[in-house]
Each structure stands twice: as C-alpha cells, then as structure tokens.
Amino acid sequence: MAMKKIQMGALALTLLVGSTQLVIAESNVVRLGAVPVPPMGALYIGIEKGYFADAGVDIKLTKTPLGPTLMSQLIGGNLDVVGLGIGAGFFNAVNKGAPVKIVAPMGGNPSQPGVQIGTSAASLMVRTDLLKSGAVKTEADLKGKTCAINALGVLTEYIMSEELARGGLTLSDIKLKTMPFPMIAAALKSKALDCGLLPPALTVKVMKQKVAKRLHKGYEPGMQGLVILYNTKWAKANPNTANKFMAGYLKATRDLQADNGWRKKENIEILTKHIKMPKKIMKKINQQWVDIKTLRVNKDNLMKQQQYYVNHSKLSKLKKPLAFSAIVDASFADHAVANAR
C-alpha cells in the first residue's frame, strides 16, 4: 500500500511538472527590437501607454540604430519581434530558410495622393543653389549629378530609383555614393553632394538651414516602408503571446494615427523620449501611414520592391521573386483586427 501511494505521488508530481513546463513554454515575454526613428513610434506608444501590458505582454526592449544587427538577432532567435525596413537582405534571408516573416505594416505612405507632403521614409533633397540657378528643375536634370543614399540594397535605394524614374533616369545615370544620413546632410551643406535622400527629421533641418529643398512634394502612394517581423519559430511556440502582441500594436497604431494622434502632446512626449528628437521637429515631420482599419501590408508595393531588388540590386541573391505567402503571414494582424474592441 505504501509503495502504491509513493507511485501515485510520483505520478502526480510528474503531471504537475509537465503542466508547469507547458505554462513556461507559452511565455508572455516578448523580446522586441527597434530602431529609434519616427516610423517605429507605435511601438513606443504601445510600451509607454500600456497597450502591450494590457494585452498581457511583457516587453523587453532593445533599441539600436543598426537595422542589420536587429535582423541577425531575430534570425538567431535572440529577439522575437523587430520593427525594420525591408530590403534585399530580408528577401535573401527568407530564400535561405531563415525563420522570419512580415506580420504587419509600420511606416509607409498613404494610398491616396495629397494626404501629406513628401514621403514618410525619405525625401529627395536637392541643393538650394542648384534649384535657384535653374541648374536643376526636374529629375531629368540630375543626370551626371553626385547624389547619395545611406546604403545599397535597402529601401532608400528603391526610393532613389523611383525618384529618378520620374525623369527617365536610372541609378547608373548619377554618381551614386553611400554614407550615413547625417553625413549626407553635411555634404549637401558643404556642396560635396548635389542631392541626397534624407529622413523626415533631417529633411526639416536642411530646409530650415536653406541648404536644400525637396525637388517635389509628391510621393509614391501606398509605398510600404517599414514592417513588423516575427521570428516564426517563436510565434509557433508562443501563438497566444504573438496574438497578444499584435493586439497591443493595433491599439498603438490607432492611437498614433487616428484623430491626428501624431500631433497630440502626450504622444509627442513619448516619441521624443525614445527617439531623442526636438519636439518642434517631431511636430513637423510626416505622419507614418498604416492602414489602421485592416492592418494589412500593401501587397502590390511589397512585391514591386522585391522585384526591383531581384532585377537591379547588386546585393540580391534571388533569381526570381518569392511568393507573397513566403514572406508575409497576415494571420496575427487579422486576429487582432477581428478581436479589437
């Protein structure tokens, strides 16, 4: 009898330990990686206003200005979720079997023209003296000019290509250089560059200094700038937490975008805390556009960007584009929208 009780006790302990392991496996902790830039503002709003916490998620935030570092950490399983700009490196990684997928949009352009001035991601800036003298009037006049982007194989290369196409040019028609955004602004000021792509904050700065101006105030409607990426192994092991994170993110995007939330004092305070940007500039930059009704990635533009890298980027390893289903999983966003209150 005593032996039977011991065996029953051992069985009960085994079942208890087993159930505990199941609970631990579905962790509520999300290791989030982000770059301190305005397009990622919804992540900081979600953290500071408690939208993630209310959804039952414990955020462990890693901030770095180095996007490639976040990507490698996500692929390696050291981060669960990241906000990132997409480029040739992302498509190459997916093609090689990396456990990453796009699950939601972040920064981008409105689907309709005239909603904002200039692109949300980066604007083509031309030196003021070239514009005043008439040396540059349209994109076609940039032929042979020295221009810069921050890196090859990333969103800014795609944007520069689209800008030049307005004037019937390609990247081979200009003297293209790569350097960090602050150096582009400085080189425009010193006249070492004729033009360059700058993010919203530096766009405002060089315009205020009368160093450079936007060549035009339009933008590519519906351009998908930044996105939310999940480590798919983590999401498969923690589906409830993955859904909870997305629920918090949806609330944050709606807070930031609806009713001109981007300009609200409380949100400006949060954004400047995490992004380290003067409040005056933060108030002037473009709102980062997301489809807050559906939280869907712009499929057509995403595939267009991928096609560009396949056809033109020196860093692309793809011979043909990947299927949309191979790079995007909309199930988490769909679940968040369907269950939003």
Rank of each mutant, 00 (worst) to 15 (best):
A235K: 02
L229K: 13
A242N: 04
A247L: 06
W262I: 05
Y249K: 00
R263G: 09
I268G: 08
V227T: 12
K264L: 00
A235V: 02
G222R: 01
T272G: 13
K233A: 14
D255E: 12
N260M: 06
W262F: 06
L226R: 11
H274N: 14
Y219N: 03
K233R: 14
A258D: 15
L256I: 06
E269R: 04
T253K: 08
L271Y: 01
W234Q: 01
N240I: 14
K273Q: 09
R254G: 07
A247N: 10
T272P: 11
K264P: 06
L226S: 13
L256S: 05
Y249C: 08
M246Y: 03
T241G: 03
K264T: 04
M223V: 05
A242V: 09
Q257K: 01
L226Q: 12
G222C: 04
G248T: 10
Y249A: 06
A252C: 10
N260A: 06
H274E: 05
A247K: 11
E266F: 04
A252H: 11
K280A: 14
N267F: 02
A242M: 13
T241P: 00
N243H: 03
H274K: 03
K280V: 13
Y230S: 03
T241N: 01
Q224D: 06
K273A: 15
A258Y: 08
Y230N: 08
M223Y: 09
A235M: 04
R263Y: 06
G248L: 12
N267G: 01
I275D: 12
R254H: 07
E269K: 12
L229V: 14
Q224A: 11
K273S: 13
N231Y: 14
H274M: 00
W234P: 07
N260D: 15
A242Q: 00
Q224R: 08
N260P: 01
E266A: 12
M223I: 13
I270Q: 05
Y230P: 12
G225T: 07
K244P: 12
M277V: 00
A247Q: 11
L250H: 02
K279H: 12
T241Y: 00
K251R: 12
Q257V: 15
L271H: 04
E269G: 06
E269V: 04
D259A: 01
L229P: 10
L226P: 02
W262L: 04
K251M: 09
W262K: 03
D259L: 12
T272V: 09
R263T: 08
I228F: 15
D259W: 07
A258E: 04
Y230R: 10
Y230F: 12
A235H: 11
G261Y: 01
I281F: 08
Q224E: 06
G248D: 08
K265L: 15
K264N: 07
P278I: 00
K273G: 05
A258F: 10
F245R: 02
A242K: 10
I281N: 00
M223C: 09
W262N: 08
G261R: 01
D259S: 10
P221S: 15
Y219E: 05
G261W: 08
I275Q: 12
K276L: 11
N267R: 02
L229I: 08
M246V: 04
T272M: 09
N243Q: 04
Q224I: 03
K233L: 03
K236T: 08
K265Y: 13
D259C: 05
A252S: 15
